[in-house]
Structure formats: C-alpha cells, structure tokens
Amino acid sequence: MNETPDFIPVRIAVLTVSDTRQLADDKSGQTLVDRIAGAGHLVVERKIIADERPLIADQLRAWCANDGVDVVISTGGTGLTGRDVTVEAHRDVYEKEIDAFGTVFTIVSMQKIGTSAVQSRATAGVAQGTYLFALPGSPGACKDAWDEILCKQLDYRHRPCNFVEIMPRLDEHLRRK
C-alpha cells in the first residue's frame, strides 16, 4: 500500500526589496503571497525594504531568529545595477548556500525569456534553520520560481525529496550532542 504523507504548511515571510514600491503596487510580492496562500502555506509576515545591503541583511537575520518563520522569500535587487544588493545581503546571512537553486532557476527562466536569463542572480541558502530565497523583482520571475521550483520543494509530499523533510535537521549543528 502506497501511503501519501500529509501536507505540512510552511510559515513564509515575503520581503520586497525596492526603493519605489509600496504595498499597493508591489505586484511581485503579491504574486508570491497569492501563490503561497494558494498552496496552503502561511504568509506570516510581509515587508518592503529599501535597496540597502545592511537593512536587507538585518531583516533576513531577524526573520531567521524568529521561530515563527521557516522560509524567507525576497523579490527584487538581484540584477546587475549598482543598487542591486539583495544577493550580497543574502550571502552576508547564509550559513550554507544552495548552489543548485540559481542553476535550476536559470534553466526554468531560459524556457521563458531565453538568454536574458543570464542577467538573474537568483540565489538561495540556509541560516539558523531557515531557508532563504532571493528572486528577481518581476512577477513573471516570481511565478516561475514558485510554480517550477518552490511549490514542489516546499511540499512535504514531493518525491524523491524536498526541503521540508530535512527542515528539522537544518540547525542540528547548533544543538548539543
């Protein structure tokens, strides 16, 4: 008998990195919120923060220290311009980088936008037992990342493996033996 495991909702914080966006016109953040909720997960917090590396890193650290947040997904600031510092802020916080996330995101993006996918610096990592994902600031990129990667990896039922099943062990190195 093949038994399917039960769905486990994940608590997700959404961060939009932008000098100009407000909640009312944050289409990328709203795209993520809608997809997260539609998948049965919980949006536990949502913020918009300016493109300032220390501010971004501080917010990521605060959410990583919060036991009520399992995953942080940021959108914006992953490009190549001088103000794009989200990737650097994420890497300031990571304990471990999930290298293949950027590669898989590029593969997904290539199918949609062709060689323009090389301009994305989407990244992911883990810190303090929390998953961190940095996505480009377009609704299309957020849809692609969620629909093609995150909705599967954040679903405990996805096989052969997923991020949720190893979540309890992400911070095992911090516990006493």
Rank of each mutant, 00 (worst) to 15 (best):
A127G: 08
A127N: 12
T16E: 01
E45G: 14
D171R: 12
V126D: 05
V104C: 13
A50C: 10
R21Y: 05
D92G: 07
S74P: 05
A134K: 01
E52K: 13
F101K: 03
R21W: 03
L150F: 10
D144W: 07
G77Q: 04
V87A: 07
V33R: 14
G68N: 15
I36C: 04
D155T: 12
K152E: 15
R159G: 12
V10A: 08
L154M: 11
D171F: 06
I36F: 02
A57V: 04
R176S: 11
I98P: 06
A37F: 07
G125Q: 00
V164A: 11
G125R: 00
F105Y: 09
I166M: 15
D84W: 02
L132Q: 04
H41G: 08
V69E: 04
Y156L: 14
G79A: 06
L60F: 13
R121L: 05
R35N: 08
R169P: 06
F101H: 06
P9G: 07
Y156K: 14
G68I: 06
H90T: 01
T106N: 12
I166D: 10
I12N: 04
L15G: 01
T78A: 01
S120K: 03
I113S: 06
L150E: 01
G137K: 00
R157K: 14
T130F: 02
I36H: 06
V33N: 07
Q119N: 08
H158Y: 15
A57S: 14
G140Y: 00
W63D: 06
H173M: 09
P54D: 07
P136L: 04
S120L: 03
V118C: 07
A122F: 01
A57P: 08
L60I: 07
S28F: 05
D99P: 04
L154D: 09
R21L: 05
P9Q: 10
A24V: 13
K112S: 13
S74K: 03
Q153C: 11
R21T: 01
M110E: 08
V164F: 14
Q22D: 13
T16K: 02
V17D: 03
I107D: 11
D147Y: 04
R61A: 13
D58N: 10
K96F: 12
A24T: 11
L60G: 05
T78W: 00
S74G: 05
L60C: 02
A117S: 10
T86R: 00
E97Q: 08
T78Y: 02
G79V: 03
Q153S: 11
F105P: 03
K152F: 15
I149K: 09
S28E: 03
S138R: 01
R176C: 10
V72M: 01
V33T: 09
G76H: 00
C161A: 15
R53G: 01
L135H: 01
E95D: 11
F7W: 08
A117M: 09
S138V: 00
G38I: 09
K152Q: 14
R61V: 08
R159Y: 11
S120G: 00
R159K: 14
M110H: 12
L32W: 04
T123F: 02
Q30K: 10
K47F: 10
R176H: 14
I49V: 13
C64R: 03
N162F: 13
I113A: 06
R121F: 03
V71W: 05
F133P: 02
V104R: 13
R121V: 02
C161I: 10
V85Q: 05
S116H: 10
